[in-house]
Design a protein around this nucleic acid. Structure first.
Lengths: 242, 242
DNA sequence: CTCTGGCATTTGGCATGCCAGATCGCCGGT
DNA sequence: ACCGGCGATCTGGCATGCCAAATGCCAGAG
């Protein structure tokens, strides 16, 4: 316990002298992790049928740090499912199969359906209604099909915001992870006109069900909306994989 | 391309001479990962209110390997959410909060509900019916309450087998991961007589719905069964946490 | 007796170097 | 010209050692 005398002598932390919290200066390990993850997510994994390999020493030169923190970052990314190291062979970037992507989207559907269920029980009406703002820029005059990239971004943001309204950090983290893994397939998501035109009304229907606190209906709409994407990938995904 | 001559000279891999794949002799890194994970899952994390700390050098001595593979294993377990390292402070075992456990069980409910949905579409009737075997040892004459530990194990095995029947490896992996994290709370799961006595009939109802291919009902039963556990932990979990 | 400043120690972060397994190319034998 | 084998080289696995930051102890000042 700090005595009253001592407290009076030192500068009161509450009043003045509010120094900036010193930057923790992230470790090389975490920097390498971020850099590698970013690079993996940016690259087009499916461009070549050849396995994409990484080299510890090359990365070491490239990032200007030793192999040790890089190996730790690689171990972390391996745990995430992005990399796989084969002893004495190399580090390879994991390519998801069509089946894996479909299963991930199904899991996503399950989690989003649960999020919808929870939202009807805990979210405020204002927060729910605010979900419409993501699509404020679109209307019958300016349909999503006219600005596919913008709509795709709004789409992702909508789903992430929706799930966060559930109040469950676990659901947020799990779906974020899934989104990372299926990120390479966003072009597939938005590839077809007919899917896009149906997307917006479905989103509005979901919001409506949430607002009216119709738990079963909101859950069903959220689930079916995303399961539709899974079915679509399952049916047409072969164009990207083989 | 292998010539016909060459192929005829070497032993046909399909016929005989199926030698065992030579043991890859797991790396120290993976051994350390397994050892640490096992130790973490075995220990009673919530016995002490003090944070549990690990020491790299102590583990190094204990396992008889250098710090390098241990650090890599720690990085992996950090990624799993089991550990958290604080620079120049130590490695601490993460204690889940009640809220986190409840959220994890809700996510589990979501995934198991989706598994039930898929099962009604893809699983064979024989596989579904075989789920009853997990509870073959129990009956009105020998209710689960009389052999709590055995029933608890059968319970876990039932749920894992159920999810695997969905055919989705992603669902299996995600639920396995969740089970690891909430493992410390199995005693809570089986702590109350009234929950146990209701558990078995609910399981049989789920199996029945799956057998009759009633997708909506199977999904609902699976979801509500596990959500009941989440609600129970939410209501009574404070006994274990605070 | 209390508080403060500094030093010894602890602990994770990182660089470096060596090792063994796996590849691939060169070279001689057939 | 082809096959087989051997070795240079590449690549991840691991041990070791030093560094800096954070802690804790202890002495000295008030």
């Amino acid at each position: 316990m700090v005595s009253v005398r001592a407290a009076s002598r030192r500068v009161n932390a509450e009043t003045g002298f509010l120094v900036q919290r010193i930057a923790p200066e992230a470790s090389f390990k975490s920097k390498a992790y971020a850099a590698l993850k970013d690079a993996i997510l940016r690259m087009d994994i499916y461009a070549s049928s050849e396995p994409m390999m990484l080299d510890e020493r090359a990365l070491s030169d490239r990032l200007g740090i030793s192999r040790t923190p890089i190996r730790e970052a690689v171990a972390m990314l391996e745990q995430d499912g992005f990399l796989r190291t084969v002893p004495r062979r190399g580090i390879l970037v994991v390519k998801k199969t069509k089946v894996e992507v479909v299963e991930m989207i199904q899991a996503w559907a399950a989690l989003e359906a649960m999020a919808a269920r929870l939202i009807t029980q805990v979210a405020s009406i204002e927060d729910i209604s605010a979900l419409r703002n993501f699509f404020a820029g679109f209307s019958p005059d300016h349909p999503p099909e006219t600005d596919i990239q913008v709509y795709s971004d709004a789409n992702i943001a909508f789903h992430q915001s929706l799930i966060s309204l559930s109040g469950s950090q676990v659901l947020v983290d799990m779906t974020d992870s899934i989104l990372m893994h299926v990120r390479g397939f966003r072009k597939l998501t938005i590839g077809r006109q007919e899917r896009i035109s149906r997307s917006l009304p479905e989103h509005y229907a979901m919001i409506g069900a949430l607002e009216s606190r119709d738990t079963e209906q909101a859950e069903k709409l959220a689930r079916d909306h995303t399961l539709g994407l899974a079915a679509y990938v399952n049916a047409h995904g072969h164009e990207l994989f083989d």
